[in-house]
């Protein structure tokens, strides 16, 4: 907690003071009036939102497909190990993999050119928001698999059979039982995914070398690029703003969880 709290404190403290230690909101108003910072925020939010939704949907689907198979089978082992690797480790390596695939000379780019589709003339680049989102989804799906699997495992087969014996079709079982039961876990996991993508930086750093404006890039630039004096504190202010966004996410998460507690033990 100290190791988490102390840096956070120093960020917050730094953001609200001048170099002389006087209380100020100057740093925040700087970020709000900077077009670059604001578009970085917009980009970060967009990418968080899209990759969270994509990752959550596809991840749940994948996890369900895996669980429907042979428990302890090869597929389950491979998917669970691969999920661990991709979700927790792969930031930098996967960026390279994407460059190799969809970079200007990437395998897929070249292949598509052969069949007459030129991605890059169509305005696509791997170092774009779309490219980044594509790469982020690559670790968002595995993270979703990890987060949602316990909830899917918690669906008892008796519920489906009981519903059937009471006359429910597969669809009405899903509608009335499975989906309501899964919703809290699903929404919770989606929020985590959002937070994860919103704050991820490693992949972007390796993929674009920092050319795409997302908030972490701006912070890094403010801290390390010694262009203008006082930039440091603007970076810290951006950090505080990120924390605020994340705090909202966490509040949402808690609200979902406590709503579910009505019928969850």
């Amino acid at each position: 907690m100290i190791f988490l709290g102390l840096p956070l404190y120093s960020v917050i403290h730094g953001a609200f003071t001048t170099d002389g230690g006087v209380l100020t909101f100057q740093n925040f108003s700087t970020t709000f009036s900077s077009a670059a910072d604001m578009s970085a925020f917009k980009n970060s939010l967009l990418i968080g939102l899209w990759t969270a939704l994509l990752g959550a949907g596809l991840g749940t689907w994948l996890a369900a497909a895996v669980l429907a198979g042979n428990p302890g089978g090869l597929v389950q082992r491979v998917v669970s190990s691969a999920s661990g690797v991709l979700a927790y480790f792969a930031g930098v390596p996967l960026a390279f993999a994407w460059i190799a695939t969809l970079g200007s000379t990437g395998v897929a780019t070249v292949l598509l050119q052969h069949i007459g589709i030129n991605l890059y003339s169509g305005g696509f680049t791997i170092a774009s928001l779309t490219g980044l989102a594509l790469a982020y989804t690559y670790f968002q799906i595995p993270l979703m698999v990890i987060l949602i699997t316990p909830a899917l495992e918690g669906l008892r087969p008796q519920w489906e059979e009981a519903a059937q014996s009471l006359g429910a079709s597969k669809l009405s079982y899903m509608r009335h039982v499975a989906i309501p039961v899964l919703t809290p876990a699903f929404v919770g996991a989606t929020l985590i995914l959002f937070g994860n993508a919103f704050s991820a930086y490693a992949t972007a750093l390796a993929l674009t070398g920092g050319t795409i404006a997302i908030v972490p890039t701006q912070i890094n630039e403010a801290l390390n690029g010694n262009v203008i004096a006082n930039q440091d504190r603007v970076g810290l202010a951006l950090g505080v703003e990120m924390i605020v966004v994340v705090a909202f996410v966490m509040i949402g998460y808690w609200m979902v969880q406590s709503r579910a507690r009505r019928w969850l033990q």
């Binding site: 960020v11 985590i192 994860n196 704050s199 972490p216 912070i219 810290l236 950090g239 990120m242 994340v246």
Partner: peptide, 9 residues
């Protein structure tokens, strides 16, 4: 969810 970049800063 806490941005590592913030922690680093």
């Amino acid at each position: 969810v806490i941005p590592p970049v913030v922690l680093a800063a």
